[in-house]
Each structure stands twice: as C-alpha cells, then as structure tokens.
Design a binder for these strands. Structure first.
Length: 471
RNA sequence: GGCGACGUGGCCAAGUGGAUAAGGCAUGGGUCUGCAAAACCCUGAUCAUCGGUUCAAAUCCGAUCGUCGCCUCCA
C-alpha cells in the first residue's frame, strides 16, 4: 500500500506518485516578513516539517522550498512608519523567522527564495501571460484576466458568478472584471521599484510563488502546501498563472493545514489575538507544540490553550520515561516478557507506517508509539536489562525522530545547570537522612526541592531527580 | 448571501460501513514505597439530535441544532 495524500483539488485521498521516482518537489508558502512570526505560522511549518520528515523516512529525497515575501504593501508601510529601509526591515524578520524555525526543531528548507530576488523571472512570466492573452497592462499595472481561464475556481470550488455577490472590496472600474488580480503594481513615490516594460513597479503577491516554482522546480511540482486560508485567492491564483502560461498541471497534490484555534476563533492579525513564537517558547517547549500537532489531524483546526499544552507536557514526560535506562539491579526479564516486547516492536513498526501512510495520520501513529512505551516500561519493571530494552528503545527513538521530537526536558537551561551540583548535594544529604530514618527532615528537603521545581523519585537503587516543567 | 469543514467518554483526540469504538491527560481502585513520586495492573463513552438507506452505520443520505473557516491581508 502506498502513501495516500488528501488532495484539496480532488477533495479526496489519492495514492502518492511522484513525478520522478524517489524524489519529491515540495513547495510551501512562507511568511510575509513584516512582523514577528506567530504560532499560526509555527503550526503550518510544523505540519509540513512532519510531512517532509516522514517522506524522507520513507526513502524519498525531498527538495523543500519555502519562500519569503519580502516585497509587499505591509512591509513598505511599516518601514515607512519606522523610517527605515523596507529591505532592512524584511531582512531582520527573516533572521527572526529562521531562528524561530531552528528553535522549533524544524529542518531548514532546501531553498528559501525571496520575491525581491526573482524579479527577472516574474517579469518574464508576466510578459508571457500578456502575450498569451491571459493578462493586460493598465496604467502601469498588469492584471490577470480571470474570465480567460476556464478552470478558474477549480481549487476553491467557486465560480466567478457566485463570488461576485460576496465581493465586499470596492470595485476598481478600470479592470475588465472585478475579480481580475494584480500581477504587477506600478510604484508610487517613495516605494521600492524595479524597471519593467510597464514602467517602474513591483510584483503582486501571487505571482512570486508561480515564478519561484518555475525557476527552481520547473513547470510541475509534486506537493504544494500552505494554510487552508490560502486556498482562495492565493493558491487559486497561482494555479491560474502557472497553468495558463505552461499549459501543464502545476502541482500534483495540494495539501492544506487547518487553522489554530485560540479562544474559539482563528488567531489572526486583524482580530489581534496573536501569540508570537518567541512568546510561546518562553512558556512552553517546542516539543509541546509539536505534540499538539502530532496528536491531531493536520487538516482539522487545532484547539490551543493552556489546558491542552499541559496535557502535552505530561504526555511528553511519558515518552521520555520510555527511554529511561534499565534498573541497575536488572537481572533479565522472563521469556514471556521479552516475547511480548519483541512482538510489540513489530506491531509498532508496522502500525506507525500504516497510520502515517494514511494521509499522515500522526495521531494514530502516536497511539502506536504509546503502546510500545507501555511494553518497554513493563519490561523494565520486570527486570529487563539494558541490552534487552535496547531494540524497543531504539525504535522509540527512531520514530520520535521522524516526528521531530527532541525529548529534552528543559534541564539544559543555564540557570538550572548552574544549580545542579547544589541539588545533587541536597539529594545526597537526604539519602543519608533516610538511612537514619529521619523521615521528617528527608520529606522537608523533598518538599522544598519540589517547590523549586525539582522532582525526586526514590527507589531501591537510590534517588533519581529531574527538573519539572516550570521549575 | 455563496462555498467548505467539523460536532466521539471530564479534557485533547484517532477511527469514516462489518466482530470487544486507538492513544494521551485527568478521575477512582490496586501493586510497589517509610510516606510520596514514577512505573505497572484494573476502571469509564454507542459516537450532537431526529429521520432514512443497508443483513449491518459513529462511519452513507436528508433535516435540525451548534461550532469554525474561506469569499478582504492572513499559515
């Protein structure tokens, strides 16, 4: 059974077949860099990072492109407000974004094209569309002629006549049709501009993605991704531009992630309920966010609040526990126990792949991982040695790597590291008190350490300790 | 107004026609422990409502209620 991917274009799951065997050309719409990235951007980036990692796990070579829109009305407006150069502004936010991605353990794209670097390609494309009759210049602007494209609306399932009812934007009487969209915009005074056959100007929003794809990947790609809020008009317009020009199918699979739900509504700039990635990471781990994504279907909206985040942190502790070493006193587990572990390893390996093959059902795959953890823990309790636990723990690490989970628990933060020797000292002291059966004092130390975020666990072999979540 | 998605135990969430409805978090009971913690074992839902199709439905169809998204910059 091959990988099945839900294609927005056909509204159903389709078997995954690449244009070239073993190779995937994947393009995901990146941010417009006029502000700090927020957790909605993070969701989209995480979804496609997981898809990419899984395709690589399944043996594909993935060429992964994500663009930066660095020429845009909002960038220009903000730069003017701040009285700095728009490209300087964009550059700063690109650096921020790349740091956010690294902090979230998202693999870097193979290429990060930028609109401002693709002007020649864009102009060439616009000229091509004009010469084929799909576009027309108008007082220094160039517009795409939507009525000329019989397939316009095929991705979003709309037709032009229905849409006219809903158009709230004031119509621009100069255009042939209100739905015609800008490929090229003439420059106003003080705006960054490039020379073009239609006078100085800059590209419209949609054309950059078409141009970049054509430039780096050619006429057709395998997967085009993005948030489902981009389906219309952005992706619809990309299809119109690319396919009108080349006559070839642009993207084989259109993959869209659902929106993050914050307080019951989409987080967005216009509503003003934004949480930046930086803000999020001061409170929670990258793994916690990734777990939320993994624990649900990428196409559905995700509920995001403190409650589900703390559930995620707990679940991650459980996953980490699966990787804990054997007991020091382990003398080997029974035949039955080891057989059960071996058979669970086989079940999990198959179950994981089956789930992920089914349109990246990460929640189902995660269930398989937890089954494995349960059996590993049981085996450890039953006295399995390090060597006996190894195959299970190796698989656990292998699969959590595919998911991109780091499974570090925050103990590497600087202030905690510095406190480690003192914590250890108190733990050692407490161990002596316990030998003397001075339970009152021993418990007092444990309580006070707990108040500082240190969790103690006593066992026959002594005491192990670790930092809790927000210690 | 048009297009679309969703509604599964206290919470999050898989499953989308067929045998006991995954998994995580929380709850209750137990094993272990000086007591805890962790781990392990046990513990709960007939799937928004109503009506249909079918030998068989959470899973298909229709209606109703509710939530959300897109139609305008948006991941």
């Amino acid at each position: 059974m091959s990988i099945q991917i839900y294609n927005t274009l056909s509204r159903k799951k389709e078997p995954f077949e690449t244009l070239e065997p073993g190779k995937v050309k994947m393009y995901v719409c990146g941010p417009t860099v006029y502000n700090k990235a927020h957790i909605g951007h993070a969701m989209s980036a995480l979804v496609f990072d997981i898809i990419r990692r899984y395709l690589e796990y399944r043996g594909y070579t993935v060429e992964f492109a994500m663009n930066f829109t660095d020429v845009d009305d909002k960038i220009i407006r903000r730069a003017n407000e701040m009285n700095i150069d728009p490209f300087e502004l964009a550059e700063g936010y690109i650096k921020d974004f790349e740091k956010n991605m690294a902090d979230l353990n998202i693999k870097p794209a193979t290429i990060n094209p930028r609109a401002s670097h693709e002007i020649d390609q864009i102009i060439e494309m616009v000229e091509g569309l004009i010469s084929k009759g799909y576009a027309y210049p108008l007082e220094g602007d160039v517009y795409f002629r939507v009525r000329k494209d019989p397939n316009y609306g095929k991705l979003s399932g709309r037709n032009l006549d229905d849409m006219r009812v809903g158009v709230r934007k004031e119509a621009d009487d100069r255009k042939e049709d209100p739905m015609d969209f800008a490929l090229w915009k003439s420059a106003k005074a003080g705006e960054p501009a490039w020379e073009s056959p239609w006078g100085p100007g800059r590209p419209g929003w949609h054309i950059e993605c078409s141009a970049m794809n054509l430039h780096y990947f050619g006429e057709s790609i395998d997967i085009h991704g993005g948030g489902n809020d981009l389906i219309f008009p952005h992706h619809e317009n990309e299809i119109a531009q690319s396919e009108s020009l080349t006559g070839k199918r642009f993207a084989r699979y259109w993959v869209h992630n659902g929106m993050l739900q914050l307080r019951g509504e989409k987080m967005s700039k216009s509503i003003g309920n934004i949480i930046s990635i930086d803000e999020f990471l001061t409170q929670h781990s990258a793994d916690a966010f990734r777990y939320l994504i993994l624990n649900s279907a990428y196409r559905n909206p995700i509920i995001f609040n403190e409650d589900v985040l703390s559930q995620a942190e707990k679940a991650l502790e459980r996953i980490r526990f699966g990787l804990r070493p054997a007991e020091a006193s382990a003398a080997g587990a029974s035949r039955e126990v080891l057989d059960a572990l071996a058979s669970q390893i086989a079940l999990t390996r198959v179950g994981f792949t089956n789930a992920m093959d089914d349109d990246f059902n990460s929640a189902g795959a995660l269930g398989q991982i937890f089954e494995l953890i349960r059996v590993i823990n049981y085996s450890r309790d039953e006295g399995a040695t390090a060597e006996e636990l190894l195959p299970g723990q190796e698989l656990l690490r292998e699969l959590t790597d595919v998911f991109g989970l780091t499974l570090t628990d925050g103990e590497d933060s600087g202030s905690r590291k510095a406190a480690d020797p003192f914590v250890q000292m108190l733990v050692d002291l407490r161990l002596e008190l316990r030998k003397l059966k001075n339970w009152a004092l021993a418990d007092q130390i444990r309580d006070q350490l707990a108040a500082q975020g240190v969790i103690l666990e006593d066992s026959k072999e002594g005491t192990v300790w670790h930092w809790g979540k927000n210690g």
